[in-house]
């Protein structure tokens, strides 16, 4: 027991700082991917709600395909696929061998594209639960389209979308464990390094689980508070 404490402590032999840095990386890559997916989701939801036929078809194809293909394959596509683009350029500049996006960028892209499909469905659902009268009232006040979007549509949709977005965030967080295959030192990769170094895989993967659980619990609390805040004054 004491051994385990020193192992994860902050002393010279301790893995504590490394694990915490890795946790920060996990949160960073998940948050970046979540934000990218959110932007993508808004565009795709807009295409589904207000687009013309080809746009709607494209949006439907995107959400169907990305929700049916394993995330791991998408991560491979981004990681090795970026190599396909970057390796010839790098070789032109005299760099030998395989060059790809850094794990962070590839992971963020993959998570963004996958979660974008889920974001789009959540946002679309939220848009339809906003009462038409509220949007019509804004038009009647003479608000220009962008102003109406920023002042009325976005806050109302955000309020309805929050619970769904919370679910997407939890999903993204757990998906980010897969980015360890690109070599990005997030929680999983750090646990792999630690377990091959100390030959104590259970201890390290268990610690990884505890870190993930802590992050999920904390973000659950934050989303609860946000939901509470955004539904003030709702009947």
């Amino acid at each position: 027991m004491l051994d385990t404490l020193t192992m994860f402590g902050f002393g010279p032999e301790g893995w504590g700082p490394a694990m915490l840095r890795a946790a920060a990386n996990t949160v960073a890559v998940a948050a970046a991917g979540f934000a990218l997916g959110g932007g993508l989701g808004i565009l795709v939801a807009w295409a589904k709600i207000a687009g013309n036929a080809p746009l709607r078809w494209l949006a439907a194809a995107y959400t169907t395909i990305l929700r049916g293909i394993p995330d791991l394959l998408v991560i491979y596509l981004f990681y090795f696929g970026s190599g396909l683009l970057l390796t010839p350029i790098a070789n032109m500049f005299g760099v030998e061998g395989f060059v790809s996006f850094p794990g962070f960028v590839a992971g963020m892209g993959a998570i963004g594209v996958v979660s974008g499909a889920y974001h789009a469905e959540v946002i679309r659902g939220a848009f339809y639960s906003v009462k038409a009268g509220e949007l019509e009232a804004a038009t009647a006040m003479g608000m220009p389209r962008l102003l109406k979007f920023r002042r009325i549509t976005l806050p109302l949709v955000a309020r309805h979308a929050l619970p769904g977005l919370g679910n997407v965030w939890q999903m993204v967080l757990k998906e980010s464990a897969l980015i360890s295959v690109t070599g990005l030192v997030e929680i999983m990769r750090q646990a792999q390094i630690g377990s091959s170094f100390t030959r104590q895989p259970f201890t390290f993967y268990f610690a990884a689980g505890v870190l993930f659980l802590t992050i999920t619990i904390l973000s659950g609390l934050i989303f609860n508070r946000l939901e509470h805040r955004y539904s003030r004054g709702r009947a």
């Binding site: 757990k174 998906e175 999983m188």
Partner: peptide, 10 residues
Amino acid sequence: GTPLLVQMFI
């Protein structure tokens, strides 16, 4: 609350 990958690796 934890990723499937963690469970599988444990």
